[in-house]
Design a protein around this nucleic acid. Sequence first.
DNA 1: CAGTGAGCGAGCTTCCGCTTGACTT
Length: 777
Amino acid sequence: MVENLVIVESPAKAKTIEKFLGKEFQVKSSFGHIRDLNKKEFGVDIKNDFKPDYIISDDKKAVVKELKSLAKEAKTVWLASDEDREGEAIAWHLAEVLELEGEKVKRIVFHEITKNAILEAINKPRLINKSLVDAQQARRVLDRLVGFEVSPVLWKKVKPQLSAGRVQSVAVRLIVEKEREIINFKTTSTYRVVGIFQITDDQGNLSEIKAELSKRFDNKAEAGAFLSKCLDATYTVENIVTKPAKRSPAPPFTTSTLQQEASRKLGYSVSQTMSVAQRLYEAGKITYMRTDSVNLSSLALNTSHSKIVELYGEKYSKTRQYKTSSKGAQEAHEAIRPTYIDKETISGTKQEQRLYDLIWKRTVASQMSDALLEKTTITIGISTAEEKYIASGEVIKFDGFLKVYTESTDEDDEKKNGQNILPPVTEGSKLKCNEIVAAQRFTVRPSRYTEASLVKKLEEQGIGRPSTYAPIITTIQNRGYVVKGDKPGETRKFVTLTLKNGNIGEKTNTETFGQEKSKLFPTDIGMVVTDFLMKSFNPIMDYNFTARVEEQFDDIADGGLVWNKMIGGFYKPFHKLVEESLQVSEKANGERILGPDPESGKQVSVKIGRYGPLVQLGETTDGENGDKPKFASLQPGQSIETITLDEAISLFKLPREIGDYEGKKVSVSVGRFGPYIRHDNKFISLGKNDDLFAVDLNRAVELIEAKREKDRNAIIKVFEEDADLKILNGRWGPYISFKKKNYKIPKGTKAEELDYNGCLKLIESSQKTSTKAKRKK
DNA sequence: CAGTGAGCGAGCTTCCGCTTGACTT
């Protein structure tokens, strides 16, 4: 029998700690929370002072059973969950469920997983902090109240299965507002003037200075007038300013900054980053990956120092302690760093190695010296005009942390990271002007959020936690509020005026702009739901809502506020909003009237229907006279917000008949799975580059024949015994098709060699496992 | 798998934060 049972949250942590503690300690994991509010019911007894109804969820029953029996045998149970609100609550739930009382239970916390820290913690046990637990209960109950009262309003007013919540609804709001900002953005242009000057030094070497005019012109005429003024101008260096500057490294990674950098530098999605990090953590290669702390342990600081000295020398080392600045941080863990900083590389998959490399560099760089720079600004005067040219350069005098790592930014503008060295000049020296270019530049419209930049924004507002950033992004996409996608760039013309060799020339070029990859776009549903929530539940949609309730949670944690009193204060006005919103009879469908149809004069409108966004021709009230309105679904890429009358009207022209083939009609239309050709009751998807309104009979026949060819190759084997049973070749390789259901062929089994009985066996065994899986759910 | 869009009502959905597997149709 082991006398001491230590319970931590994660099994990987348990394994490490067990090694530090002697044989008389057994370390187990709770796998996070063991109890939660009842999911099938409302879970909160509103009439009874918001009493929570906690239950042990099915997937935790086995864990709890094991912990219970171990706890019974142990003399002392050490609850070592994290030192934040959620961790304290986990400890409390464990104490309750395992029926631990008095001397038998001890609460301990440690800030780093080292032998010393843990032994120290064991020597300084404390009691469970019930105020902190209450703050968690308040957080939990508030989220349940919001989610389970507002979501049903959406089912009634918009569409079933939708959801609303303190975090997700605000995340969607951010994306919707960004989209409207883009829709409403008015592009303007100015003329930016750049002069290219030449100077010859004493040795006769020629060098070039690129300088930008201090003024931008509003239009071509003004820019042209300026260039004319410069025809006979001379240029003089009027002023040279040299200033030292320094740049400091970014702090070590938190969950959110790791997600951002892995997205920018490695192109990982937020969830991808988290699962790769999880594998590194489980392999003992990095510290815990869900954290909001930038703190490094003293051990980490020491190994960083010696590693930096070893690799780059003493003057590259500068030990730094960072302070967390993000709102609502709870700092239960260290920053994300390599467990062993002296290991520059690791074994593992390519993905793991790249992420580890990023973490290693960021951690090490954070403990390195500042980079020292010299910034030079040269002002060039024009003899015939008042404006000045400004040339700026930057020289790195000492690279410091830049030797290892530079943080990326979201706005990858034209600026290069490299140095821009200016040639040596002296005040008063004359410059020869080689060329002046005045180019039309457009204002840049805002870009949509990436997964990672949304996480950044949420963190800045104190919304969501490290463990929830990735799930939030999945949720808002699963609910159909947001889609991740690309947008092709548009092209536009721009004018450049050039002054060279005493002549002013004009040229018109084209450029592409506004191209976006892997960005978050709101759907029509997302917009309609956001508008509805903004109108009916404004206080909850406020960007500061979370921050304000967090303040109250802090008061609860400090013992200054009783949790169910706080919830009561929130619930009364909130529930009134719920009731009021239900009293309004009309549904929220985002309807927009586009105008009359030029042919029939009937009204054309767009709105959300039962099956998604649609256009409608005619009004329902017309139905009295026998004419029912016509409907058509919007195509992917179209939205209620931006569709034009012309685009809407062309949707009614489907299905479009384009001719006959083999005596049967060929038509084009669009369905749930995108645009298709219909022929002889068969459906063939259109290719990505085919235009629905441009496809002709020739192209259609091509596609029909291609499809026939593919179908011929699809059948690998048929059986005399049963016509329903076939072996087919699909997207993922061979599979068995039987009575309209598909079955997998296990790896190592050759499809060609399978006989009738072999197939039946596979079908039987797969049916067994699938019913098992269903039962588990 | 490729129609649909009236209205009613059965029975369903839904939150956020802690954790890791079990899943690949």
